[in-house]
Amino acid sequence: MQAIWNDKVIAESKETVIVEGNHYFPAATVNKDYLTPSDTTSFCGWKGDCSYYNVVVEGKENPDAAWYYADPYERAEKIRGHIAFWKGVEVKETNS
């Protein structure tokens, strides 16, 4: 799977975790050069507290387009250390 925005591959992994239709990429497979911290947070009743990153490519910013659960609840433990994308970031299968 790949996460692409503004024609750049932000993340690529053969092993994502799918939760509620979203692909969570292992953090090690995400190019952190394209992420900047966001002050935005949210809460999910079964996953816990959520934090966000802005996706920035060639000077263009997509606010809060990546999210993660730093300390997920036990029932969502499988997404610990993973990052997911939305807001126009294309997540698709690779041909390789």
Results as ranks from 00 to 15, higher is better:
residue 45 G to M: 00
residue 58 E to M: 08
residue 8 K to S: 12
residue 19 V to A: 12
residue 47 K to F: 00
residue 35 L to A: 03
residue 87 K to S: 15
residue 21 G to Y: 07
residue 15 E to K: 14
residue 38 S to M: 01
residue 43 F to C: 00
residue 37 P to A: 09
residue 21 G to F: 05
residue 28 A to I: 03
residue 46 W to D: 02
residue 80 R to E: 14
residue 8 K to F: 03
residue 14 K to V: 04
residue 62 N to L: 06
residue 2 Q to G: 02
residue 78 K to C: 15
residue 45 G to R: 01
residue 1 M to E: 06
residue 36 T to Q: 07
residue 59 G to M: 02
residue 46 W to N: 03
residue 18 I to V: 11
residue 9 V to N: 08
residue 86 W to E: 07
residue 4 I to S: 04
residue 71 D to F: 13
residue 94 T to E: 12
residue 72 P to E: 04
residue 56 V to R: 01
residue 81 G to P: 09
residue 14 K to Y: 10
residue 27 A to Q: 13
residue 75 R to Q: 15
residue 68 Y to K: 08
residue 90 E to Y: 08
residue 28 A to Y: 07
residue 56 V to C: 02
residue 8 K to P: 11
residue 18 I to Q: 10
residue 34 Y to K: 02
residue 84 A to D: 10
residue 90 E to Q: 14
residue 65 A to I: 13
residue 63 P to N: 09
residue 71 D to Q: 14
residue 67 W to L: 07
residue 34 Y to H: 03
residue 70 A to N: 09
residue 26 P to F: 01
residue 77 E to F: 14
residue 13 S to N: 03
residue 91 V to P: 02
residue 86 W to I: 11
residue 75 R to W: 14
residue 33 D to L: 07
residue 22 N to I: 06
residue 6 N to P: 12
residue 56 V to D: 01
residue 78 K to P: 10
residue 44 C to P: 05
residue 29 T to C: 08
residue 2 Q to P: 03
residue 12 E to F: 05
residue 5 W to P: 03
residue 46 W to Y: 09
residue 36 T to N: 02
residue 11 A to L: 05
residue 66 A to T: 01
residue 81 G to F: 11
residue 65 A to S: 12
residue 73 Y to V: 10
residue 80 R to N: 14
residue 8 K to C: 06
residue 12 E to K: 11
residue 66 A to G: 08
residue 12 E to N: 12
residue 13 S to Q: 02
residue 6 N to F: 04
residue 93 E to H: 15
residue 36 T to M: 05
residue 13 S to F: 04
residue 15 E to V: 14
residue 21 G to P: 00
residue 70 A to E: 14
residue 25 F to R: 00
residue 5 W to V: 03
residue 72 P to C: 02
residue 90 E to K: 11
residue 30 V to S: 03
residue 4 I to R: 09
residue 68 Y to D: 02
residue 62 N to H: 05
residue 40 T to D: 05
residue 92 K to E: 14
residue 86 W to Y: 15
residue 44 C to R: 09
residue 80 R to H: 13
residue 29 T to H: 06
residue 82 H to F: 08
residue 55 V to M: 00
residue 37 P to W: 05
residue 58 E to L: 08
residue 47 K to M: 01
residue 50 C to R: 00
residue 20 E to H: 10
residue 72 P to K: 08
residue 16 T to C: 05
residue 27 A to M: 11
residue 57 V to R: 00
residue 31 N to H: 04
residue 1 M to S: 14
residue 85 F to W: 07
residue 58 E to D: 15
residue 16 T to E: 07
residue 96 S to G: 15
residue 77 E to C: 11
residue 74 E to T: 12
residue 55 V to Q: 00
residue 70 A to M: 14
residue 30 V to F: 04
residue 27 A to D: 13
residue 21 G to T: 07
residue 26 P to H: 04
residue 66 A to I: 01
residue 22 N to H: 12
residue 14 K to I: 01
residue 80 R to Y: 12
residue 23 H to L: 05
residue 58 E to G: 11
residue 23 H to Y: 09
residue 46 W to R: 03
residue 23 H to V: 02
residue 84 A to R: 04
residue 61 E to G: 10
residue 37 P to L: 08
residue 1 M to F: 09
residue 27 A to F: 06
residue 80 R to S: 15
residue 49 D to H: 05
residue 59 G to W: 01
residue 8 K to Y: 11
residue 33 D to F: 06
residue 41 T to Q: 05
